[in-house]
Design a protein around this nucleic acid. Sequence first.
DNA 1: ACAAAGTGTAATATATATATTGCATAGAAT
DNA 2: ATTCTATGCAATATATATATTACACTTTGT
Lengths: 65, 65
Amino acid sequence: MAVSKVKITRIEKGLTQLELAQLVQVTRQTIGLIELGKYNPTLKLCIDIARALDKTLDDLFWEEE
Amino acid sequence: MAVSKVKITRIEKGLTQLELAQLVQVTRQTIGLIELGKYNPTLKLCIDIARALDKTLDDLFWEEE
DNA sequence: ACAAAGTGTAATATATATATTGCATAGAAT
DNA sequence: ATTCTATGCAATATATATATTACACTTTGT
């Protein structure tokens, strides 16, 4: 699997996993696993992450086709 | 809470809760609770629902602001 | 060389999404 | 009136998202 859009966007924003985790109130591990595609996060968390990164759900989690 | 976009879209498509549930392989109850905003579904299920309804995540689950 | 920060990973515990079963009600069709 | 479909709701069971703690490795800065 390619690098996730969450990871790319987080790095573009200059945030660490820990900082993003604190912004959305989860642990660093949860962010790490989502970035690696090993988790199936809940909608609420996806929305929180998108807002924290100034993106939308489609920007981060949608793939055409 | 207003009627969810999932419910509106499902009805526009002429589907029952049971039919949509079968399309995305969950139970009728799960669809019903998501439509009523009483569940926090997983990303995978949101994606499955969006594809089943020919919509995107943003169409069904994103709210501006 | 060393310390510190960032990240991947793993084991166990906890919270919660989802399944299962069942009942109640309303509306449509007959 | 009665049957059937669609939906809301509730109790309990199961699967899994997430937390917690801990360790290893790499990179950067000093």
